[in-house]
Every structure is written in structure tokens, then in C-alpha cells.
């Protein structure tokens, strides 16, 4: 899980071109949106593309988005659960 979260963090920073914050300043359980990394709705779409492109996971229920994309940790947990299926 630790390795996946580290990879995921790197991918998120690359995909979203996050230059205003350093990767080491973001904890795995820190919120990605609003008060955390400050991501917006376009970033949310990019994260959906990332899941699809890098992990072959299509978001079945968009309503689950806020829970899945809450933090790097919740994303990693979702990837782990859905890659096994």
C-alpha cells in the first residue's frame, strides 16, 4: 500500500501539474480538495482519467467520487480493491 501511495502521489503531481506545493508537504491522508491540496472540478476529471489510464479502472458510480478521491490513501484503497477483482 505504501508503495502504491508513493507512486500515486507522484502521478497526481505530474498529471495535475502541481507546482505550488511540494509532494513531501502532502500527507497521504490529507484531503485533496478544498482545504487540502485545493483541487477543483477539472482536477477531479483528470483524476478519473488517471484511474482509467494508469490502472484500467473505470469509475462505475460517479456519486462515489468524493469518497474515492478524498485523499491519496482513499484512492490507493480503491485501486487496491478494484484491481484484485
Amino acid at each position: 500500500m505504501e508503495e502504491l501511495m508513493a507512486t500515486l502521489k507522484k502521478e497526481i503531481f505530474e498529471q495535475l501539474n502541481l507546482q505550488h506545493v511540494k509532494p513531501e508537504d502532502i500527507a497521504y491522508d490529507q484531503p485533496l480538495f478544498v482545504e487540502g491540496l485545493g483541487l477543483d472540478s477539472i482536477d477531479a476529471l483528470e483524476l478519473i482519467v488517471l484511474l482509467q489510464q494508469k490502472y484500467g479502472i473505470k469509475l462505475a458510480n460517479p456519486a462515489e467520487g468524493p469518497k474515492i478521491f478524498y485523499s491519496i490513501k482513499t484512492m490507493a484503497e480503491y485501486i487496491t480493491a478494484h484491481k484484485k477483482q
Partner: peptide, 10 residues
């Protein structure tokens, strides 16, 4: 051609 980027589309 691979995965359309929403961040570019806007």
C-alpha cells in the same frame, strides 16, 4: 488519441 485531457480541453 490516448486519453482526452479535461485540463487541456477547457
Amino acid at each position: 488519441l490516448e486519453a482526452p485531457s479535461p485540463a487541456l480541453f477547457v
